[in-house]
Simulated scan of single mutants.
Amino acid sequence: MRIGAHVDSADPLAEASARAADAVQFFLSDPKGWKAPQPRDDADRLRAAEVDVYVHAPYVINVATPNNRIRIPSRKLLVAHAAAAAEIGARGLIVHGGHVNAGDDLTVGFDNWRKTFAYAAESGGFATPVLIENTAGGENACARRLDALARLWDVVGEYGAGFCLDTCHAHAGGEELLDLVDRVKAITGRIDLVHANNSRDGFGSGADRHDNLDSGTIDPELLLAVIRGAGAPVIVETPGGATGQAADITFLRGQTGIGDRLA
């Protein structure tokens, strides 16, 4: 099982080395901005590296919203990030599930997700697999609760959408981690990546505040059960920089069923 971390984008391979990580995840542009990603000088090194690469799309992207001023730029930016991620050999592009505004029909959000994949299909589809991530908060979210996720997958599953399971988001979003993998796979048929994070806040809080794996409000044994059950690559998005994340990676590698670092 490949285990890595979300790192600074300046030199991801150096960050991987500092954590003894098998994988890295990073942003290709300002996560709170709308600028398109630019070509990277280290693209050849990233493509050739033994370290697996994942890209996280900017937080501003919300393809579900009925607001044209956000939805249309979001679609274009997601396509641009998928193309840029392909240039560096990324295995997946992670994007949050998005939401509609208060008072809007959530059905519109699901249909906008369908149109997003249809829009990309017009130019040959996304250049990198898109992994939709469950989110922690919002009553109008498309991927917070599993009942909403099921409705989302009814419209995007046929396009080959992937799924990224965030343990902190699930806990804070009000989904029990016990048997979560089975319940998710019954909907999506797949888990392509796990964001392994503890939660600083309590169950159902709706707060997206990550903590290290042996801290926080989630029993570490529950986190380990999710990771073992998913059988997917793992990215920790935990605090503490290289030291804190390296400790989390070491913790995971020391557990039965998780596995040692690949040579």
Results as ranks from 00 to 15, higher is better:
4 G>P: 13
258 I>K: 03
214 D>T: 15
230 A>Y: 10
113 W>C: 03
157 G>R: 00
220 P>W: 08
108 V>D: 04
156 V>R: 05
184 V>Y: 06
110 F>N: 05
255 Q>G: 06
243 T>S: 14
238 T>H: 11
36 A>M: 02
117 F>L: 07
136 A>E: 09
198 N>H: 10
65 T>C: 09
262 L>A: 13
205 S>H: 05
187 I>Y: 06
236 V>L: 03
70 I>V: 15
75 R>D: 10
235 I>T: 06
71 R>G: 13
111 D>M: 04
66 P>L: 00
23 A>S: 14
124 G>L: 00
49 A>H: 08
23 A>T: 02
146 L>F: 03
260 D>C: 01
50 E>G: 15
144 R>I: 11
95 V>A: 14
262 L>G: 15
29 S>H: 00
105 D>H: 14
182 D>P: 01
206 G>E: 10
104 D>G: 00
156 V>H: 00
96 H>C: 10
119 Y>R: 01
211 D>S: 09
135 T>C: 13
146 L>V: 11
85 A>K: 00
30 D>T: 13
4 G>E: 08
117 F>C: 09
133 E>V: 03
35 K>V: 13
260 D>V: 07
1 M>L: 13
122 E>T: 12
231 G>N: 07
124 G>Q: 05
152 L>C: 12
130 V>I: 15
208 D>F: 06
230 A>S: 09
199 S>V: 00
18 A>K: 04
44 D>Y: 02
173 G>M: 08
92 G>R: 00
29 S>L: 07
10 A>R: 14
211 D>G: 06
91 R>W: 11
77 L>N: 05
214 D>R: 13
186 A>F: 01
102 A>E: 10
72 I>S: 06
161 A>E: 05
187 I>A: 10
114 R>M: 09
256 T>W: 07
166 D>V: 06
123 S>P: 08
119 Y>D: 15
165 L>V: 10
159 Y>D: 02
155 V>L: 09
85 A>T: 10
89 G>L: 07
244 G>Y: 07
206 G>D: 12
8 D>G: 15
260 D>P: 07
105 D>Y: 06
68 N>F: 04
234 V>P: 07
63 V>K: 05
219 D>K: 03
131 L>F: 15
169 H>G: 05
232 A>C: 04
255 Q>Y: 01
11 D>N: 14
83 A>W: 02
170 A>R: 00
154 D>K: 15
217 T>Q: 15
122 E>K: 14
50 E>I: 05
161 A>R: 04
155 V>P: 13
85 A>C: 09
243 T>N: 09
164 C>N: 11
130 V>D: 03
87 E>V: 05
47 R>V: 11
101 N>A: 15
118 A>T: 14
223 L>I: 14
59 Y>K: 04
16 A>V: 07
233 P>D: 00
129 P>R: 03
84 A>K: 00
164 C>R: 06
215 S>T: 10
53 V>R: 01
211 D>T: 02
231 G>V: 09
103 G>D: 04
137 G>H: 02
175 E>G: 06
188 T>L: 06
